[in-house]
Computed example of a mutant assay.
Amino acid sequence: MTTADRNRTALAGARLVLPDGVVENGRLAVEGARIAALGGERRPDDLDLDGFTVVPGFVDLHVHGGGGASYASGIAEEALLAARTHLEHGTTTTMASTVTGEIDELCHQAAVLSELVEDGVLAGIHFEGPFISHNRCGAHRPDLLRDPDPALVRKLVDAARGHAKMVTLAPELPGGLESVRMLAELGVVAAVGHTDSDYAKTLEAIEAGATVATHLFNAMPSIQHRAPGPIVALLEDERVTVELINDGVHLHPSVLDLAYRTAGAERVALITDAMGAAGMGDGLYPLGPLQVRVEDGVARLVEGGSIAGSTLTLDVSFKRSVTLGGLSLDQAVRSLSTVPARLLGLADSVGSLEPGKNADLVVVDSATYDLVAVMRRGEWIIGADRFGPAARA
């Protein structure tokens, strides 16, 4: 195939999950890096996607690594490997999430990751820690935790050179609310997570500008009938997007259902919270300064046994959502693509199948919902050979 041909591609016969519904036997044309058109008559040189479903590329707000590599390593080659691993599983837009460490080390990581944002590999940086609660620190090293002093928070944001997209913090800590206000003024998402906050303090954080719940239900107080805690406050406020980890480990299916029935698919972002073992097998892996053991795909700290992120990829989350989670195709697409793209301010270019947007596509089998192919910005990443010689690069 010539370069000119590769820059003009049409997929025909597929089920397309579009913003206004699902279209059977649809046609999608790609020119260069963008979607050129939807619909039109089928042509002899179109790629045959009968039996396949096309959805927009997935957008992951919260991921620490994959392929045996970590974004917290401070090594560009590792970050590239992690991003590539998730890209091959359908995540065409990815944030790089750090983990609690020394402030200067986090600043170094931010500088390395910022270069990859500028190169178009990553969509931004998410700082998870060190401004979190000792009581809810999970897989974060307790001795490195810090109160969210606005000056320290600003130091991390500045180290990211304009590419810090989100900071997770515990608003009940000294400086928490002030830092939320500052982040909102800077255009950085303030996320409530790893928190021991109560209901009232969480409402204050939302009023101050917090708009995300970091992996809702995990690393925060449970709902009690006299002390509803942060979960109820975050679920009930329409300004808040709630992250959920649909890996069969972090949340019971009934809890996922509760979140969807309360918040609706327009406020749920399905994330991986994946660490370096994503896309790999069982074994020992680093998570920042801590060691994690993965057994049967479940990641836990070697010391203490706390759940330490996940080994999830978003293609698996998508399949679980539509086969086990009771979500419709368009609901799953909203949570895996549209909602996180909107939160990151990228809805003009990614998150849905529309003309003019990036040709970021995930192709799955219409019967099994298993991943078949991935396209990013008009180039096949994997699976092109599934559609015959015309799809070969």
Rank of each mutant, 00 (worst) to 15 (best):
T98A: 07
L38A: 05
R377W: 01
G383T: 01
L80F: 00
T262D: 09
G90K: 00
E31Q: 15
A83F: 01
V180H: 02
G51P: 07
S114A: 15
F131L: 13
N135Q: 12
R293H: 10
L169E: 07
G383Q: 09
R136F: 14
S328I: 09
V242C: 15
G90E: 00
G68H: 12
V333P: 02
P228N: 06
L11I: 15
D360A: 09
D330C: 03
T211Q: 11
V212L: 09
P389R: 03
I382C: 14
A347Y: 05
A33V: 03
G175N: 04
A29I: 04
N7W: 01
V339C: 12
Y71I: 08
G51T: 12
Y369V: 09
H126F: 01
G388A: 13
T9G: 00
T338D: 04
R42I: 10
D45H: 14
V63D: 02
G209S: 06
P340T: 06
G74R: 09
R376E: 13
A123V: 01
T91C: 10
E128G: 12
A265M: 02
A96V: 03
P171L: 11
L327T: 08
A347G: 11
G378A: 02
C137Y: 01
E78S: 12
L18P: 11
M220D: 07
M375P: 04
L144D: 10
G101T: 00
L144S: 10
